[in-house]
Write a protein that binds this DNA or RNA. Structure first.
Lengths: 359, 359
DNA sequence: CTGTTAGCGCCTTCAT
DNA sequence: ATGAAGGCGCTAACAG
């Protein structure tokens, strides 16, 4: 017995409550669970005492005994600070909270090794399931069979080599429509700031771009195409290189919001007149100096649908692939083009802004 | 009796592992925990078998027996889709993950009732601690004494009526400096789009504004001051009303990023020449049509520091107020003004960004 | 070094 | 309608 231990307030147990009422712990348990087979007056007495004492049932013990898993799912994304993932997380959290399920969020910073650790750790914690936006195209470590049967749903990328549900954005259609729009506006020299071809979004979004060019009978100039991980700095530099070509493109399509911002940085600083269309909406796109078209979609819905698929599995007893295979689900979130024409501002003399410091 | 049911992959237990090696569960337990007092060859044998079987320890049972809390902390914010909270969450998550602690994130949408439910639920789940950005100024339901001793750290708002640590942003200094800057630029008719006076940030940010005006010998025109919850639409309308005054302000200060965006929407659509300074940085402020000054600070640091304070308490045995009162900690995150002079990018001059941490 | 005993807090089962 | 016994999976505390 260490005497100098600061009094860590002993969580009350059912025994404490039961003792104070002179009943058994079972009576308390039944009252709290709302179980049948307990007299109403008794239940009231118990609940009153629980309230008075501020007692709360220990979920750990309950779940251990009743064999339930945690009412907790994991969400693994590359970077929660990216608005897309933040919205996805909000959607997942809302859908889960309706079922009393919490969401444990972790960012991998795109590191597959960290992703692997996180997945294993979450499985060891006996989470009820995982929603994963994969950082790489190696999905073997997501296989529920190696995760004690922990159900898994992928988002933004379809499973490769494993058999799980997923929620996808209509990547192909998004860039296809964006490119069609630019072509419709008269552009034929269209650049593309893409993502690594090894990723699903990288290849699909490129495919949409290429298909639209092809359907319009236009050639893709390979000098206009660059691929790199979504990173503002890299996109700035890539855009710079496009502008420095002897015959630069007259329009650019970007494959995600990081690339869009990078392109905007370079374009805003140059006086080139290049049309821009980008995947992912941007909250204040209507306030930019340059007109912008975006491939918009409901990012929250990606999270909501993923949570829904996961909870369906969890509540139906998480049938593991190989046992009862229903065929996996695949939900597609549609995209649509939004134009921010930069038309609201009707100031005839842009220089006027510079005078604002002197009233 | 090796009942390997093909239907439901029942999670393996230590007994299964122990049985296959002909040892006791204690030996397995010691091997897994890295406990001393076990022969190295034995440990290797055990670990090899664990690996071969894909066994994972049940954390629920371990925590129940060892009395440890979850390696899990809760983070309660009003809206994770707000970039400020997203960055805060990333900071908290990074700091926690270093200690092997996960973060359970929940949004309240500013609803105090939901906040209350969430807090009680998280305490019942026996989380190791809570980081809370309060939705209201009623903090009674955060008192660790009514949460079974669950440690609590507040962020962005100091505790009221309870005795817990907190991490604050230098709200007063931020708006003070912003206002000084506008005054230094020659403005004397300064408007203020504030937050409800009942909130800490609402009153402090107003106080900074008022102090700067006062120090400069300027009067505050009450017609120029509005207060409402941070909401883009409300801020748009409030800005409209300011512009419609017979003698509108020549500069406006906004109290958070929602208000800043609302003001920008209205200002961008008007041809009024009103200077704008706003609390919270905005990622693409350099790409806007209008010049903007912001009160910037390291939002990630708010989360990191909050996690640090919380983990300190958790690992030191969470002394609860009333027992051993050390005096609570209060960490202040500094602010600094960043000017986005509206893209005249012929002369990039990045000295304002010196304090920003960027990979 | 390894095994035995006991019990964390709760809930399932069966008795009364 | 209530209570007594037992165990979920794991690990302190003590054997040997």
């Amino acid at each position: 017995m260490t005497a100098s231990e600061p009094n860590r307030p002993q969580p009350l147990t059912m025994r404490d409550v039961a003792a104070r009422l002179g009943v058994s712990t079972m009576t308390v348990s039944r009252a709290i669970r709302g179980d049948t087979g307990i007299a109403e007056p008794t239940r009231q007495r118990v609940l009153a005492e629980v309230e008075a004492l501020g007692y709360r049932r220990n979920d750990l013990a309950r779940q251990l005994r009743s064999g339930e898993s945690h009412r907790l799912v994991g969400l693994i994304v590359t970077n929660l600070a990216n608005p897309f993932y933040a919205q996805l997380a909000v959607g997942a959290e809302q859908a889960a909270s309706v079922h009393g399920v919490g969401v444990l969020v972790s960012s991998t910073n795109g590191d597959p090794e960290r992703e692997r650790e996180l997945v294993l750790d979450m499985a060891a914690r006996r989470l009820a399931g995982l929603i994963i936006v994969p950082a790489s195209n190696d999905h073997r470590h997501f296989d529920p069979q190696v995760l004690d049967g922990t159900p898994v749903v992928l988002a933004a990328t379809p499973p490769q080599g494993i058999d799980v549900d997923c929620v996808l954005v209509d990547d192909f259609r998004g860039t296809y429509d964006a490119c069609r729009k630019l072509i419709g506006d008269g552009h034929s020299r269209v650049g593309f700031l893409g993502l690594p071809a090894s990723t699903w979004t990288g290849s699909e979004r490129y495919r949409g771009f290429a298909a639209a060019m092809d359907d319009a009978g236009l050639e893709i100039d390979e000098r206009y195409v660059s691929r790199h991980r979504g990173d503002i700095r890299l996109a700035e530099a890539a855009t710079r290189r496009l502008l420095d070509l002897p015959d630069p493109p007259t329009a650019i399509i970007t494959a995600n919001n990081r690339n869009t911002i990078g392109a905007l940085r370079t374009l805003t600083r140059s006086d080139a007149h290049v049309a821009l269309a980008g995947f992912d909406d941007i909250e204040i796109a209507d306030l930019l100096q340059l007109p912008l078209s975006v491939v918009a979609y409901d990012a929250g819905a990606v999270g909501r649908e993923a949570a829904r698929l996961l909870l369906d599995q969890i509540e139906s007893g998480a049938p593991v692939p190989g046992a009862a295979t229903y065929g996996r689900q695949r939900v597609l979130i549609p995209t649509h083009i939004v134009d921010y024409p930069q038309a609201d501002y009707t100031d005839p003399e842009p220089d006027a802004h510079l005078e604002q410091d002197e009233p």
